[in-house]
């Protein structure tokens, strides 16, 4: 997945598609001539010393363990001791496991529902913040929740939503004598989704704002002269000119949403003292419980199988997302 992040702009020129449609002399740098220019030769010489160390580290620390995980997923293994080869059994079992399917469903809910909410809010905030007085302060304020460890929200959830907690104490004077059971097992996941929207929106707003700030003011002046509404300004100026930033944000969210774990772990399950209720499990939690729950013999085969499956399915999603979001970048 990370490869997609490093793919664009390796040479500082605008996106390839725009470039290849109308080749300009500069593109010879990319080596269209068979032998390559002297610059090209120099670049090739530098490839190994510059890329090599990072590449070796990346391979040793990420790619090899990932392949190792695939290997483990074909076995029945308690983490140490003998390994028993079982082929694709672990995968078949996971697909039959209702719990894995619901956990993966939760991951998709985070990815799409929370993701949509975050970006709608982030764009709305972007529009408001651009013209607002004191926008720097406002920006810091909305970014702040992102700096706080998810553990804090998990612990705070208790203070706020416990039967005798803050929300119910505030509702009592209003005549609410039978408030909802906020922390009932079925309500924990929706609460987690709301918390994630609140904490992550600021982060993406900040990134989008950086993109919006690059837009030269004369476009807005044009809009004002043409009598464009705020929505039209978003539709015809801001969105097209920040599309690449938005695309990167979407990929970032996809990747991070798949790994969401700690907030689920601390929100339910008593801040880590137990396993959270299965209704709030994500694919990452499912993986963790299989390997490290500490209450039963570790099942590394099943755990890695679920991790490999999530990785595969998410890789497909990222590729599809990149494809759907592909536009010619507008130069300005």
């Amino acid at each position: 997945m990370t490869l997609h992040l490093t793919e664009p702009r390796t040479d500082g020129t605008p996106a390839q598609s725009a470039e290849s449609r109308k080749p300009v002399p500069r593109t010879s740098r990319r080596g269209s001539r068979p032998g390559g220019s002297s610059i090209d030769v120099q670049r090739k010489k530098l490839l190994i010393p510059f890329v090599g160390p990072a590449f070796v580290l990346y391979t040793v620390l990420f790619i090899v363990p990932a392949l190792g995980a695939v290997w483990i997923s074909l076995h029945k293994w308690a983490g140490s001791g003998p390994m028993k080869f079982v082929g694709l059994d672990n995968y078949g079992r996971i697909f039959r496991d209702q719990l894995f399917l619901s956990s993966f469903g939760n991951t998709l809910l985070l990815l799409f529902v929370v993701g949509t909410a975050i970006f709608v809010l982030a764009f709305a905030l972007t529009l408001v913040l651009r013209d607002m007085a004191g926008k720097k302060i406002a920006r810091n304020v909305i970014f702040f929740p992102h700096l706080i460890n998810a553990l804090v929200f998990g612990v705070l959830a208790g203070f706020i939503f416990n039967p005798g907690g803050m929300v119910n104490s505030l509702l009592a004077p209003l005549g609410v004598t039978d408030p909802p059971k906020w922390l009932a097992q079925d309500n924990i996941f929706p609460l987690i989704m709301v918390t994630l929207v609140c904490t992550t929106t600021g982060y993406f707003t900040t990134i989008l704002m950086a993109g919006v700030d690059r837009i030269p003011p004369y476009y807005y002046e044009d809009c004002a002269l043409a009598g464009a509404s705020a929505f039209q300004r978003l539709r015809y100026v801001i969105l097209p000119l920040t599309w690449d930033v938005f695309g990167t944000c979407a990929v970032l969210w996809t990747i991070s949403s798949v790994k969401i774990f700690e907030i689920v772990w601390v929100f339910g399950g008593s801040s880590g003292a137990g396993v959270p209720p299965t209704q709030s499990w994500t694919a990452a939690v499912y993986t963790y419980v299989n390997a490290f729950s500490g209450q039963s013999t570790p099942a590394y085969g099943a755990a890695t199988a679920s991790a490999v499956l999530s990785l595969a399915l998410i890789s497909v999603l990222v590729v599809l997302l990149r494809r759907a979001m592909r536009r010619d970048a507008v130069e300005f």
């Binding site: 097992q185 299965t278 299989n290 729950s293 039963s296 013999t297």
Partner: peptide
């Protein structure tokens, strides 16, 4: 505790969720 049942994932994935439903 739990009468020493440690079969892989049994308590967390099979027993606890259903026992929770009973107790809750």
């Amino acid at each position: 505790q739990n009468d020493g049942v440690t079969f892989p994932g049994f308590m967390e994935k099979v027993f606890f969720p259903k026992d929770d439903e009973l107790f809750l």
